[in-house]
Structures are given as C-alpha cells and as structure tokens.
C-alpha cells in the first residue's frame, strides 16, 4: 500500500515530558516524523502539536490510535483529507554577490518573502507558505548559492465552514 503524507494536529496537556512521550512513541514503534511543531494554545494548560508523518492507510489508523492512547493526549485530528490551511516558515541565508542581488530581490518579491538580514556577501530571507511553495523557492535559490536553511516544520488548522 502507498505511503502518503498525513498531517496530524494533536491537543495535549501542556506539561513537561509530554513531547517526549509522543516522540518516544514514534521512535519506539518505528513510525516516521517528517516534521513536528509544538506550542501553547489559547488555553495555557493545552498545547498543540502538529506532526507530519508518512504512512499507508492501516498504519496511519494505528498511529492515531496509539497517540490517542497516551494519557496526556486530549484529541487527535487528522487534517489530511479535509479542507485545511497549512503553513511553514523558513529562514534562508543565500550568497548575494553584486551580480545576483537584483535577481534575489525579484524572486523574494514574487514569493512574498522579506529580507530580514543583509550583509556585503549575503541576504537572509524570511518566507512562509506550504511545503510546495518553500520547495519551489529553494529550487530557484539553489543555483545562486544557499548557505544555510532553518525551517519551522508545518503548522496547520481546519478551515471553518463558510
């Protein structure tokens, strides 16, 4: 069966050790984590974890049940298959030789990014978007010369019914 990308949004008790329980579950059972993002929600005793994983259908069912079984997990939502918004932020440090500066600025503009740090030999770009958008940007910047990348991993939410 085909392995596909699944985005899970998990509400957990905001307590020490909870992240380790979830990460330990994934490593202990051989599940894969593509990215993981965690922060407090409006309710300070609850955190939201967004995990992107790759699995076939029976396995993703098992993964969701196993996460649900953890005592500190309040709710597991699978976003994949529903209408949802997904965003990720990246900081990209690129070589900025004089002959490339204009092109970099043009690309950044097209992708609605920002330059957040400038040096004589580099630009640092801030950009948000889906995984697809970030990949497209990176492929355009690669020939110019990427020095460093930091990515947050995806965060996601259901869209509200209209």
């Amino acid at each position: 069966m085909n392995e596909e990308k699944h985005v899970l949004s998990i509400m957990v008790d905001n307590q020490p050790g909870v992240l380790s329980r979830i990460a330990g579950l994934f490593s202990g059972r051989g599940y894969n984590i593509e990215s993981l993002c965690v922060a407090e929600t409006m309710d300070s005793v609850v955190s939201r974890l967004t995990i992107v994983t790759k699995a076939n259908l029976p396995l993703i069912e098992q993964i969701k049940k196993q996460i649900n079984k953890l005592i500190n997990v309040i709710k597991v939502h699978e976003l994949t298959g529903s209408d949802y918004v997904e965003r990720e932020m990246a900081l990209i440090k690129v070589n900025a030789k004089p002959e490339h500066k204009a092109e970099i600025l043009r690309i950044v503009d097209i992708f609605r990014g920002k330059i957040v740090d400038v040096g004589t030999e580099h630009y640092t770009i801030e950009v948000t978007g889906t995984d697809g958008k970030l990949k497209a940007l990176l492929s355009l910047l690669k020939p110019i010369g990427i020095k460093e990348i930091a990515r947050t991993g995806a965060i996601a939410m259901f869209r509200e019914g209209k």
Binding site: G17, S20, R21, G24, L25, G28, I71
Partner: peptide, 14 residues
C-alpha cells in the same frame, strides 16, 4: 526513571 519507564508503563508521574 520516569524517562526510562515511559515506554513500559501505562502512565508515570514525577
């Protein structure tokens, strides 16, 4: 011990 027994307890507390 809470870290060590995380995968082999139903739950644990410090």
């Amino acid at each position: 011990i809470v870290g060590i027994t995380r995968p082999c307890t139903k739950h644990n507390y410090l």
